[in-house]
Design a protein around this nucleic acid. Structure first.
Lengths: 192, 192
DNA sequence: CGCACATGAGACATTGATGTCTCATTGCGG
DNA sequence: CCGCAATGAGACATCAATGTCTCATGTGCG
């Protein structure tokens, strides 16, 4: 029966390690396996028993990020109601994963093919579809492509996450800053 | 007299090396000193004669980036005319340095104190002052802080630069995408 | 021509991170 | 109580990048 216990405990620990690693690598993306292990409160040997190596760890983090994003997209119900409300819900649901997302966004350029492009592509497609829906409904302007709006959303989330970590902006304004800038822009609106 | 020749040629070479390194590191931020040397068409030994080490190279790139940004800010004449026009000029002038900027933006979190904060702080202050001027003139909304708008500008420039490098968006739309999103946002405007 | 100097090529030691291994300890279930 | 399995601690080899060194080459300039 030890196999059952093994599997169960390992799974719990694995998730804990993964989240510790995410929290650490968000702040210091070059952290050592040693530092990751210490941050998770385990030894380097145990860390290696969970993840074959640094690559495996990063790929597991990537999977975690993809999962959390897909959960967020599901929870945001992108197909329902006005597109701009869906964007607000999306940013709200994405906020808890913002740190991890910022880390992965920064690493993305390094993957260069060894990345799980399928997962990201699926997320990109769903988000781009939301922007396209907003364009077709007349809510969003059509001279900014869905692809660029999707990129900009990622970029703003990463920027906001880093700025909050460095204390340059207030964390409580996270959603507001991103949504208001992304949807409304910096220009002042005329009062109707 | 050899010292004169030395200084002159070295200065020219140094600049060429610096720009090659910028171009390479923009695409592959983890490039080796060997790769940097090859990209510049010189040997690793000569590269080390120009820059004591990798740190020195990155710091020189940082200085280059700061210089180019300050030149861009000067050329954009941020104090003149409507603030939104100044923002347009700013993005236009910043475009040639976007790749280098994206690289440095990604590295910024790693510096953690060893960075030339004075230079960046001065740039931040000038850009934030522009946004503040726009707020005071009534052009920009006041519920987004100048600090966040500055962060967002950096983030959008880096996102756009990476997206263009990866071919996800068209390079010719660089200025348009950034300025339109930053100033106008994604929402469609009512025709007046 | 001959000198000075920058360069290229490559050897070399060093460092830091990584991956693998062993062994003693702990904790839990039978 | 016994034994199994996971863990922690640490030794160890490996590898990649770095930094330093020497020496031969070549090129320009007097």
């Amino acid at each position: 029966m030890s196999h059952v216990r093994y599997g169960c405990l390992m799974a719990l620990d694995r998730d804990h390690v993964l989240r510790s690693a995410a929290a650490l690598l968000t702040r210091k993306s070059t952290a050592t396996m040693d530092e990751v292990a210490k941050a998770a409160g385990i030894s380097r040997a145990t860390l290696h028993r969970h993840f074959a190596g640094r690559d495996a760890l990063v790929r597991a983090l990537e999977s975690l990020g993809i999962e959390e994003c897909e959960s967020a997209l599901d929870a945001a119900r992108l197909d329902e109601g006005p597109a701009c409300d869906a964007v607000r819900r999306l940013v709200r649901e994405l906020e808890p994963a913002a740190g991890l997302l910022a880390f992965l966004y920064g690493e993305y350029q390094l993957f260069e093919g060894e990345s799980q492009n399928e997962g990201w592509a699926r997320l990109d497609a769903r988000i781009a579809a939301l922007f396209r829906r907003g364009q077709e409904s007349g809510e969003f302007r059509i001279d900014l492509t869905p692809a660029w709006l999707t990129e900009a959303l990622y970029g703003l989330i990463a920027s906001a996450a880093w700025a909050v970590l460095d204390g340059r902006v207030a964390g409580k304004d996270f959603q507001f800053m991103i949504v208001e800038l992304l949807l409304g822009g910096a220009l002042r609106r005329e009062e109707p």
